[in-house]
């Protein structure tokens, strides 16, 4: 009888141990069921949650601006070729379903914000304006607006 109880306890411990292993080794992941609607590579098949982070058009626009700002501020620190920077802006825009980023004023405001955040001088701002916005007054104004909002 005692032997039987001991065996039962060992079995129970083994089962509990196995369960614990299952629990511990699988933390921090997400289950298969939600992958389709989650983050990086797939869109929600059913809802409007096509973008991983956004839930409204306004918030999507502000997230795009924020991503452009972060990318520009980082470029100011790391440096690199200017055409590589422009190419990178295209990649950021594409993640927000935008291909013609040059025609989108939000892009320029985000770049201006990034320049301001990175502590760019007025002279540097002007150089970026010339390189990206040319003589387009609207684009230049958007860059200036972003720069002024984040200038340190």
């Amino acid at each position: 009888m005692r032997h039987g109880l001991g065996l039962l306890a060992v079995r129970a411990a083994a089962v509990a141990g196995l369960a614990a292993i299952v629990v511990l080794t699988q933390a921090c992941s997400f289950s298969a069921s939600s992958k389709g609607s989650s983050n990086s590579s797939e869109s929600s098949s059913d809802s409007s949650a096509s973008s991983s982070r956004s839930s409204s058009p306004e918030s999507a626009e502000s997230q795009y601006k924020s991503d452009v700002r972060e990318y520009t501020a980082a470029y100011m620190k790391t440096g690199g070729q200017f055409d590589a920077f422009r190419r990178g802006i295209g990649d950021v825009a594409k993640k927000h379903n935008i291909t013609n980023w040059e025609d989108n004023p939000v892009t320029y405001e985000g770049i201006g914000q990034g320049l301001g955040e990175a502590g760019a001088t007025d002279l540097q701002l002007k150089a970026y304006m010339d390189g990206l916005a040319g003589q387009d007054a609207t684009k230049r104004a958007a860059m200036q607006k972003g720069y002024d909002a984040k200038k340190k």
Binding site: V23, Q26, A27, C28, S29, F30, S31, A32
Partner: peptide, 10 residues
């Protein structure tokens, strides 16, 4: 927790 890759919680 739930089953799958999330049995340890998050």
């Amino acid at each position: 927790s739930n089953e799958g890759g999330s049995s340890g919680g998050h």
